[in-house]
Nucleic acid binder design. Structure first.
Length: 277
DNA sequence: ACCCTCACCTGCACGC
DNA sequence: TGCGTGCAGGTGAGGG
């Protein structure tokens, strides 16, 4: 489910909810969630530590602890953090639990079992393979038009596939890649190396715009991950989509019917009139 | 080095 | 109602 904007919102909520909390006890319920450690090692490394910072890198959420370790997490498709009280039961598909003082606990729940956690030394986070490969943060100065242009020219794939490759542009997934291409009026099948300088600048702007817009929209909606009525999980975001999941519906710009095509096994949505090859 | 397909899971919408 | 099929927003491993 989550792409950069959603992960950013979850990170902000977690930061406000669990920063400074001490993990009295940690449980790895499903061992394969954290394949680099045994459940005992996982519990041992976290129990008794205090959460100092909650940060985001790409679609990863990082909890840095007061023992020079960082818990690296990824929600993948269906991962979700929930803050529960002692009278709440663990939901189905609970894979990890972090107990705080006063019976409050943070639960990691993941229906599709794709989520991922790993504990690493804080000083070594940047060298972890899954972090090291990430392109610059799209809202950072490092993600410049020049960076994007060089990266586009180094490849010749369909641009939509390029945009969801985290080592090229990080944070976009299937939805926001389609949305950014619509904003920049670029056809998803266009080859990356054929993008003009001017169109590259438009795409660069569109990527930042689409991410910023989604974060802003989310922060005004109820995107609290600990709330089961959260707009984020309730699908409120969908009303911001211009092309995604709108096959057959009229384009918001020109009225033409939105089309769908399959790229690398995934659906892409686009306006056949607005988006040129 | 790149590019593509598949696998990892469960649930849901759909058609028969 | 029940069952089979295909699909879902992410990513890595493994093949060519």
């Amino acid at each position: 489910m989550p792409e950069l904007p959603e992960v950013e919102l979850v990170t902000r909520f977690l930061r406000s909810l669990v920063c400074g909390q001490r993990i009295v006890r940690a449980e790895l319920v499903r061992a394969r969630l954290a394949p680099h450690s045994t459940p005992e090692e996982f519990a041992g490394a976290l129990s008794g530590t205090q959460i100092k910072l909650v940060a985001r890198r790409g679609k990863h959420i990082l909890f840095s602890l007061d023992n020079d370790r960082t818990l690296v997490t990824h929600l993948r498709m269906s991962g979700r953090f929930m803050l529960l009280n002692s009278d709440d039961e663990n939901p189905r598909f609970t894979h990890a639990v972090f107990h705080f003082q006063d019976g409050v606990r943070l639960v990691f729940q993941d229906q599709r079992h794709f989520g991922f956690m790993r504990i690493a030394r804080t000083t070594e986070i940047a060298d972890l393979p899954e972090v090291k490969k990430l392109a610059p943060e799209p809202l950072s100065d490092e993600f410049s038009v020049e960076y994007l242009r060089a990266s586009l020219r180094a490849s010749n794939r369909a641009i939509k596939e390029f945009l969801i490759d985290q080592s090229r542009v990080c944070g976009l997934g299937n939805i926001y890649a389609a949305e950014a291409l619509f904003l920049a009026q670029v056809h998803p099948s266009k080859r990356t190396s054929t993008l003009s300088r001017q169109r590259t600048a438009l795409l660069h702007q569109a990527i930042r715009e689409i991410i910023t817009e989604a974060i802003d929209a989310g922060s005004t909606l109820n995107a609290d991950p600990s709330d089961s009525d959260s707009a984020y999980y309730g699908g409120e975001y969908e009303r911001y989509w211009r092309v995604y999941a709108r096959e057959g519906l009229p384009c918001v710009e020109c009225g033409a019917a939105i089309k769908r095509l399959k790229q690398a096994g995934r659906s892409t949505f686009y306006c056949p009139k607005c988006q040129k090859r």
